[in-house]
Simulated assay, not measured.
Amino acid sequence: MNKDQVKGTAEKLKGKVNEAIGRATDDTKQEVKGDIQQAAGQARKNLGDAKETVKKS
Rank of each mutant, 00 (worst) to 15 (best):
G8A: 08
K16P: 00
I36C: 04
I21W: 04
A43Q: 02
D26G: 10
L13Q: 14
T9V: 10
R23L: 13
G41L: 05
E19I: 03
G34F: 13
D26T: 15
A20H: 02
D4V: 07
D26E: 15
A40R: 07
G41Y: 11
E52V: 06
K33P: 04
Q38W: 02
D26P: 10
A40E: 14
K14N: 15
G8Q: 06
Q38R: 08
K56S: 12
K29Y: 11
K7S: 04
G8M: 02
G41M: 09
E52T: 04
E31R: 00
Q38C: 05
T28S: 09
T25Y: 02
A24E: 13
I36H: 07
V6S: 12
K45H: 09
G22F: 00
T25Q: 14
I21T: 12
G8V: 04
K12V: 12
A40M: 04
S57F: 02
S57N: 11
G34V: 09
I36E: 09
K7V: 05
A20N: 01
N18L: 11
N2T: 08
E31G: 01
K45G: 00
K56P: 03
K55N: 00
R23D: 15
G8Y: 00
A40L: 04
K33Q: 12
Q42G: 05
E52S: 03
N46Y: 00
I21N: 10
E19A: 14
G15A: 06
E52Y: 03
R23V: 09
V17D: 10
K51A: 04
D26H: 08
G48Q: 09
K16W: 01
Q5G: 11
N46L: 06
Q30M: 14
D49R: 04
V6P: 02
A20G: 01
G15R: 07
D4E: 14
Q37Y: 12
L47N: 09
D4S: 12
S57V: 06
K55H: 01
D27H: 15
D35M: 14
V32N: 12
K45S: 01
Q37H: 12
K29I: 05
V17P: 00
Q42F: 00
G34Y: 13
D26R: 11
K16T: 14
T25P: 06
V32S: 13
K12G: 04
D35L: 13
T9I: 11
K33T: 14
L47W: 02
G48R: 01
K7Q: 11
D27C: 14
N46V: 06
K51N: 08
V6L: 07
I36Q: 12
K55E: 01
D27S: 15
Q5F: 15
T9A: 14
K55T: 02
G22T: 09
N2K: 08
D49P: 03
D35R: 08
T53K: 01
A50L: 07
R44L: 11
K51S: 10
V54F: 05
N2Y: 06
K16V: 11
M1A: 05
S57D: 00
